[in-house]
Simulated assay, not measured.
Amino acid sequence: MAQPDNSRLDDELELLHAIYPDQIDYHSRSRDLKYSDNSALLHLRLPETYPNSGFPDVISANDASKRDLRDRMKRAISESGVVEGEEALDVIIAAFQGIVGDINNDTPTTNDAPDTASNSAKQETKTVIIWLHHLLALGKRKLALNPSNSSPSISGITKPGYPGILLFTGPRDVVDEHVNELKQQNWQAFQVRYEEEGGWQLGDGGIGAGIREVETMAEVVKAVGSRKDEFLRAVGIK
Rank of each mutant, 00 (worst) to 15 (best):
D25Q: 10
S53F: 06
G161Y: 12
V58H: 04
G203V: 07
M1H: 13
Q188W: 07
M73F: 03
P56A: 12
P152Q: 08
Q3P: 09
E177P: 11
N119D: 11
Y162F: 15
R172H: 08
G98Y: 04
L136S: 06
S120G: 05
D32A: 12
P171K: 01
D37V: 01
E219W: 08
D25H: 11
S153L: 07
Y20M: 02
R72E: 02
Y35V: 01
S60P: 07
D90R: 05
H43C: 09
P114N: 09
G205S: 08
V220C: 06
D115E: 06
Q123E: 13
V235Y: 00
R172V: 09
L135T: 06
A94T: 06
I157H: 02
V179T: 00
Y162I: 11
E86S: 12
D37T: 07
S148W: 03
Q23K: 14
T116G: 10
E124N: 09
D106G: 09
I103L: 01
A144I: 03
N146W: 11
S150G: 14
A95S: 13
N149D: 07
L42H: 00
V179G: 01
L182V: 15
L33A: 12
H17F: 05
A88G: 11
L44V: 04
L143R: 12
L33G: 10
R141E: 11
L202W: 00
A209G: 06
S30M: 13
E195I: 02
S78M: 14
T158C: 13
F190E: 00
V179M: 00
G170W: 02
T107M: 02
D25I: 08
G205V: 12
D37L: 03
Y20W: 01
S118W: 10
T110I: 06
R193T: 10
G225W: 02
K140V: 06
I165Y: 13
N62G: 11
R212T: 15
V82L: 12
N146I: 12
L145Q: 15
L9T: 08
D90K: 05
S28F: 01
E197C: 13
T110N: 14
Q184F: 07
D32L: 05
N111S: 11
R8E: 15
L166R: 04
K140L: 09
T107I: 07
R29L: 14
E215M: 14
N52G: 07
V214F: 10
I157S: 00
L69Q: 02
G205W: 06
G81L: 05
I99D: 00
G81Y: 02
V91F: 04
I157R: 00
N146T: 15
D37M: 02
Q97M: 04
A2Y: 03
V214E: 09
V58G: 01
R172D: 08
H134G: 06
W200H: 12
D115F: 04
L89T: 00
A18I: 03
Q201H: 11
E230N: 01
L232M: 04
R29Y: 14
S60L: 05
